[in-house]
């Protein structure tokens, strides 16, 4: 069972909630819960608490007058005070900038400056920039993220130019961006690809450009499958042996990988293979410290890739 927030945490949430309660407006509890966090039950409890709050002398006219009817809340009076949003505290500014880091917006992004204008005087933007980096701000990815987020909201088709990493093929496609997915710091967009006529996953850092087409799409009737990693049960498995002393990739780097330390100090890694080109490149990158033992098709792909790269080098 989730732990009930302490009083200070609840009070903090209540003080964020207060300015949202404008006289004459009706809100749903779900909307307010989304706005300040917490479950609908917790927010209903918070609202009940607020009806007991006010200013001296605490006559009925001095208490916050809310009408709570099921999941609807109507505000019947102007608040006696605290009717404006509070400035951001240091931890809140840190959370916002961290989130924007994750979305690829670096220190030069205008949105960061706008948000920090709402921060308390003792919050140092420079110190935050110098002490926290919650994500890599890759060149151009922030703009892609914003374009795709807006297109996803508006159900607008987007034309993308995409590099398939393992093969180097560059293609132009029209996609329906369904959902943005961050896995371990790398953003993907799960989309319906009109050219492939099926759902595909695209890494944002391999999208060269994204341009809304102006056409809209029907969102999927069922929630899309949002996984960006292969389903181990449905894919062939490659077996890769890593030499003693070599740190093998974990399940984060090689999704679905299972490792087994062997008596001679080597490590056997079994990994589901969605793309032979991908696993060949991954193994070749170990420069001889890793060997595919099965299947033969992957061994061949690794050998051919190594020879091809060696010829390029020459």
């Amino acid at each position: 069972m989730p732990r009930r927030p302490d009083s200070a945490t609840r009070a903090r949430r209540l003080l964020v909630l207060l300015p949202l309660l404008t006289r004459g407006e009706t809100h749903t509890v779900a909307d307010l819960a989304a706005a300040v966090g917490g479950t609908a039950e917790e927010i209903t409890g918070d609202l009940m608490t607020l009806t007991m709050c006010g200013v001296p002398p605490f006559s009925p006219f001095d208490l916050i007058d809310l009408e709570i009817d099921g999941d609807r809340v109507t505000v019947n009076m102007d608040l006696p005070a605290m009717d404006r949003a509070l400035r951001l505290t240091g931890p809140e500014a840190r959370a916002l900038l961290g989130a924007l880091d994750v979305a690829g917006h670096d220190s030069a992004a205008p949105v960061r400056r706008k948000l920090l204008a709402a921060a308390a005087d003792d919050v140092s933007p420079e110190e935050l920039e110098r002490t926290l980096r919650a994500g890599a701000a890759l060149e151009g990815v922030a703009a892609l993220y914003s374009t795709l987020a807006a297109a996803s909201e508006a159900h607008e088709k987007v034309r993308i130019v995409y590099l398939t990493g393992a093969t180097g093929r560059i293609s132009e496609r029209v996609v329906h961006p369904w959902v943005l997915v961050d896995r371990l710091g790398t953003w993907y967009v799960v989309a319906f690809c009109e050219d492939a006529a099926e759902e595909r996953v695209f890494r944002l850092d391999r999208i060269r450009s994204a341009t809304p087409t102006g056409e809209t799409f029907e969102p999927p009737s069922m929630p899309p499958h949002i996984g960006v990693t292969p389903s181990p049960g449905t894919l062939p498995v490659a077996e890769v042996v890593f030499a003693p002393g070599t740190t093998p990739p974990d399940a984060q780097a090689w999704p679905g990988a299972i490792s087994e330390l062997r008596a001679d100090g080597s490590t056997l890694v079994k990994v589901p293979v969605q793309s032979v080109a991908w696993i060949a490149r991954q193994v070749a990158a170990y420069l001889g410290a890793a060997e595919v033992t099965a299947p033969e098709s992957v061994r061949t792909a690794v050998r051919e890739l190594a020879r091809h790269l060696a010829r390029e080098l020459a």
Binding site: T9, A35, V36, G37, L88, T89, E92, L96, L180
Partner: peptide, 24 residues
């Protein structure tokens, strides 16, 4: 938790229509 309260303060509400998920 701080992110949710920060967005609440600046009046940005997560939109049920926005689909984005994260697994850090």
């Amino acid at each position: 938790a701080d992110l949710t309260l920060a967005l609440g303060k600046i009046g940005v509400r997560p939109d049920a229509g926005t689909v984005a998920v994260s697994d850090l």
